[in-house]
Amino acid sequence: MALLDKPYHDLFFYLPDNALHAIADDVNAHRISDLDHGSAPIDDVTISSLGRALLPALSRPDQVNQLFVDHILFALGVHVARKYGGMRPITREARGGLAPWQERRAKEILSTHIDGRLMLKEVARECGLSASHFSRAFHRTLGAAPHQWLLKHRITVAKEKLRDRRISLSEVALACGFTDQSHMTRVFTRFVGVSPGAWRRSRLD
Rank of each mutant, 00 (worst) to 15 (best):
P100H: 05
R92V: 09
L76P: 06
Q63W: 15
A75W: 01
P100G: 02
K83H: 11
P56Q: 07
G97L: 05
R95L: 10
A94Q: 12
P61D: 09
A99R: 07
L58T: 01
L73W: 01
F68T: 12
I72G: 04
V69P: 08
H71T: 14
I90L: 07
F68M: 13
I72M: 09
G97S: 07
R82K: 12
L58D: 02
L73G: 02
R52P: 05
P100T: 02
H79P: 07
G77A: 10
R60C: 11
T91E: 06
G96L: 11
V80Q: 00
P89V: 04
A81W: 00
Q66R: 15
V64S: 13
Q63L: 12
V69L: 13
D62K: 13
I72A: 07
P61H: 10
N65E: 11
V64E: 15
I72V: 15
G85S: 09
R95E: 12
E93I: 08
R52A: 14
I72C: 08
A99T: 09
G96N: 13
R95Y: 04
Q66G: 08
G77Y: 06
R60P: 03
V80D: 01
W101F: 08
T91Q: 02
R92A: 12
N65Y: 04
M87F: 01
F74Y: 14
E93V: 09
